[in-house]
């Protein structure tokens, strides 16, 4: 663990990612403190250019809504949806992959067929269909993103389990009569965790991009303000007030970049031999 932290801390890019991520988390936590009112409220004159009014540092959109409030509240939406959707995908993927890899045989075969099926369907279009049929809400968006992103986790977990399954310590567990569930959860899973964590951190980034894309298409939860929603609305005034579109886009870019850097940093620190690849 100490080695791991030292290796991670030596990676400047990963530390940069952590710093950006902490800023985004701070935005999300401070949103209800600094902007207790709804970000949908019209609080300023419309089309206030960033920097023109100190009360609204990022300016306002065509309806006079404070862009800074939107960015703060959007950070909350992006992080919550990104993280919860990833947890859903991890729960489904790890369960399916663990069962398939541990039991093998026809169980493995059947589960991998299902995984293949889900992997064939284009993920983003699938997410659009799910959210649009079940009506856009934070819950439906989280479940849709979880539904379309678990297959790679299942494949990864399965391959880890397949190799661990035949190792001696697992055989020893079976010999002393330990139950399958206990072996899977307490003995095999901890050894397979490192690559799953790396994948998870990168999946949060993808989930945030997917959420932004859905919101941009108008499939965001109508009750919360997401960065994608602001871009979707700002698109109509692109020619006259480009900053309405530009600012939330930069927020998404930085957040996704930070998560990718952290994920890669974790990967390098957990597999030091692969460094510099």
């Amino acid at each position: 663990m100490k080695d791991f932290l030292r290796r991670f801390a030596r990676n400047k890019a990963a530390i940069g990612g952590v710093v950006i991520l902490l800023v985004v988390i701070a935005l999300a936590l401070l949103a209800p403190v600094l902007y207790p009112d709804s970000p949908w409220d019209m609080v300023a004159e419309p089309f206030l250019v960033p920097g023109a009014d100190r009360a609204h540092p990022l300016g306002s959109d065509m309806m006079g809504r404070d862009l800074a409030a939107g960015i703060f509240h959007g950070a909350r939406v992006s992080l919550v949806i990104g993280i919860v959707a990833t947890l859903v995908a991890l729960a489904v993927g790890v369960t399916i992959g663990a069962i398939a890899g541990y039991y093998g045989g026809w169980v493995d075969n059947a589960l991998m067929r299902v995984t293949e099926l889900f992997q064939t369907i284009p993920a983003f279009i699938f997410a659009i269909v799910l959210v649009s049929i079940f009506q856009p809400s934070v819950t439906s968006i989280v479940l849709a993103i979880g539904t379309v992103s678990w297959p790679p986790v299942a494949r990864l977990t399965r391959s880890e389990f397949l190799t661990l399954r035949s190792r001696e310590f697992v055989q020893a567990c079976i010999t002393i009569g330990m139950g399958d569930l206990r072996i899977i959860v307490l003995h095999v899973l901890p050894n397979a965790l490192a690559p799953i964590i790396v994948t998870g951190s990168l999946m949060v980034a993808t989930a945030i991009l997917t959420e932004a894309g859905l919101a941009f298409l108008g499939l965001g939860d109508p009750n919360v303000m997401s960065w994608g929603t602001i871009i979707g609305a700002g698109r109509d005034v692109l020619r006259t007030a480009a900053y309405v579109t530009a600012i939330p886009g930069i927020a998404i870019l930085l957040t996704v970049l930070a998560l990718n850097l952290v994920g890669e940093g974790l990967n390098d620190a957990l597999n030091p031999k692969l460094k510099n690849r």
Partner: peptide
């Protein structure tokens, strides 16, 4: 690294802004 983190629809809008508008 930057291109990998950029939302596809946003870069599209920014390109319209630069190259068309």
């Amino acid at each position: 690294l930057l291109a990998y983190a950029t939302p596809i629809f946003w870069i599209g809008l920014m390109m319209i802004l630069l190259f068309s508008v």
